[in-house]
Design a protein around this nucleic acid. Structure first.
Lengths: 151, 151
DNA sequence: TACTTCGTGCGAACGGTTCTCACGAAGGGA
DNA sequence: TCCCTTCGTGAGAACCGTTCGCACGAAGTA
């Protein structure tokens, strides 16, 4: 029996790619996603992937990201300078993401939308079917750094 | 005295462009924004502008949109298929926009974010500085149409 | 009227993303 | 183990939204 490239974490691979075919590049991308602290762009992820395997093409990273998004392993949480911002998200249930504007770290938060207030303030007849909340701020370590630096 | 091109609504022009120089193209863009029902992309706005003045360049429309955004007359409320989505917004105070996913109509709504709930569910130490809420649904006329069509 | 300033059109450039195509590896069946 | 089909890959062109550079001309002012 030959060594399987992703033997130690087949479950992770299956979750990330929803049972797709295994390849060294896909493994590298999945591991780079694991190393990425918080939100990342495809460009940033490509750089991380190439630290491990310099030959991986950008098209491949895009394809992997699409596959992971299709399987629900990645979520698009916004944009940064025109580029899509992704984050690994395997949390269940309705929730939103906080993004640290300083370091890009992310965290989950419960939905802060008050459905009653929303229904009350929506115009007559407008049926709200979905919403998208993006929360920005500073994570614990970054806000500590700012406070120390600022005084 | 020659006719001023935007004579009937100099106030509108001033609001849209914050006192910039007048030109036929800027007038056409401002009028197209007025004709646009709800949210629009720059591409869609360009089409509207060219109904009135086919010679207006896309770069000019982009420049006009930037000027109107700088003056607060337009607000960017999201994206559609990778293109920025704009809406005319001269409302004061903190609010958000509802977008009809069927016809693109927009409406204002008060901020539905429950600050207490948000603070309670945010991770320890995470300071939230801003948020961005996008609400999607069906406007009165579109939801009526769906109901009639659906049964 | 002359002059300066600024908006314009054209088109190239840019960056993010997708597509095409030939190739090769993965995986399943015999 | 071999063969065959399927699917992931790399390279780079293409696409699209957006911005930039430049020369020109119109707006506005003295």
């Amino acid at each position: 029996m030959t060594e399987r490239p992703f033997a130690a974490s087949n479950d992770l691979f299956a979750r990330a790619y929803a049972g797709g075919r295994s390849s060294a590049q896909r493994v590298a991308v999945a591991q780079a996603v694991g190393r990425a602290a918080g939100a990342f762009t495809v460009d940033g992820l490509t750089a991380l992937v190439r630290e491990q395997d310099p030959g991986v093409s950008k098209a491949t990273v895009y394809r992997c990201v699409s596959a992971m998004a299709a399987s629900g392993y990645l979520t698009r949480i916004g944009d940064r300078d025109g580029a899509a911002l992704w984050v690994r998200c395997d949390a269940d249930g309705h929730h939103h993401h906080l993004v640290c504007t300083s370091c890009g770290a992310t965290a989950h938060t419960a939905c802060p939308v008050d459905a009653d207030a929303l229904a009350a303030s929506a115009p007559e007849g407008f049926t709200i079917t979905s919403h998208d909340v993006r929360l920005y701020g500073l994570c614990a370590s970054c806000s500590g750094r700012v406070q120390r630096a600022g005084g």
